[in-house]
Design a protein around this nucleic acid. Sequence first.
DNA 1: AATTAGATAGACCGATTGATCTACTGTCAA
DNA 2: TTGACAGTAGATCAATCGGTCTATCTAATT
Lengths: 185, 185
Amino acid sequence: MTTRPGPRERLLDAARELTYSQGVQVGVDAILKQADVARRSLYQHFGGKDGLVAEVLRSDGGLDRYRQVMNEAGDDPRERVLAVFDELDAITSQPAFRGCRYTAAELTLTDPAHPAHAEVRAFKEGLHRLMAAELTRHGHPAPDAGADQLLVLIDGVLAHAVTRPGARPALAARALAEAVLAASK
Amino acid sequence: MTTRPGPRERLLDAARELTYSQGVQVGVDAILKQADVARRSLYQHFGGKDGLVAEVLRSDGGLDRYRQVMNEAGDDPRERVLAVFDELDAITSQPAFRGCRYTAAELTLTDPAHPAHAEVRAFKEGLHRLMAAELTRHGHPAPDAGADQLLVLIDGVLAHAVTRPGARPALAARALAEAVLAASK
DNA sequence: AATTAGATAGACCGATTGATCTACTGTCAA
DNA sequence: TTGACAGTAGATCAATCGGTCTATCTAATT
């Protein structure tokens, strides 16, 4: 039989799911209930709700998913970048799609002192490095600026898909990503 | 001496400011205090907090601001579209910038029944029509698809600027907007 | 002058929030 | 056997939430 994970993992799993489907405003009680964990364990492991939310973002592995999608697309930088937008089209078409978890956290948590903000920034910086590396391999004359453009496109797709469900923004963005790639020599 | 606006206007002004600076999670009490209005007036005029929030979005005049920026740029559709991104660069560079109020509302308010969602959608649709009209005048072969691209860029700029303050995403997006315009015959 | 509608002030409500606390249980190692 | 420790269960806390209520005041209408 499968041993179920410890309280810490169960808390992270429950929080990851509920803070996405219901937003970070979800109550601690709901998380505790779904995790089937004692109240005290939460404060023992994460210090409080804020710490739990931050750890959810930190341990989310969002960057790994981007890497995986690109790796499955092969070696060609161009194909690897475009594969990201194909994947975005699939993600944003799912009924359970509720936007980018990082952007949502950033916009929802107004308090600048919230530990989640640092995690959001770290994620975006990591994604920027990821994209810049691809553009460098592709011979792009300004990989940093190009990565900025790709990030705008990615964030734009994830933000826009929430408000206009039928728009398929990833397809629109994919064509612009090709324009970014076309800047290479 | 200037007669101060009625309770309804004061409520809208206070709510517009506070829901932006502190998010829609801001308490009713804070809005009432800043508006210097009796509690009852809020429920008399708007039925509740949800109604007030929705009316803030509806009466925000965000579309008018886009129109004004484009009108100030003259008649040429190309200049009018690019002026939008110049303006976005200015807006996102302000210290008080806290993201797109509509996107934030959409991501924060999880309840699908919240009346704000309809206002968000109406705004984005209006913006889409605005951009499509410019592309049509510019001779774009597919104004609707082109407007989709411009909206992704706009949403991307507003979303990305929140998480990476120094990135100047509007400048990156402006170059891509030129690519959209270049599709015209 | 009488009536009426809108606004104000503020008490009050039940529900929920995040967090702390005590008491108890099970496990493993010394 | 003892002790340490992590986890559980649940009472409890103060604060805050959105919303309803009564009572009073004011200004325009009739």
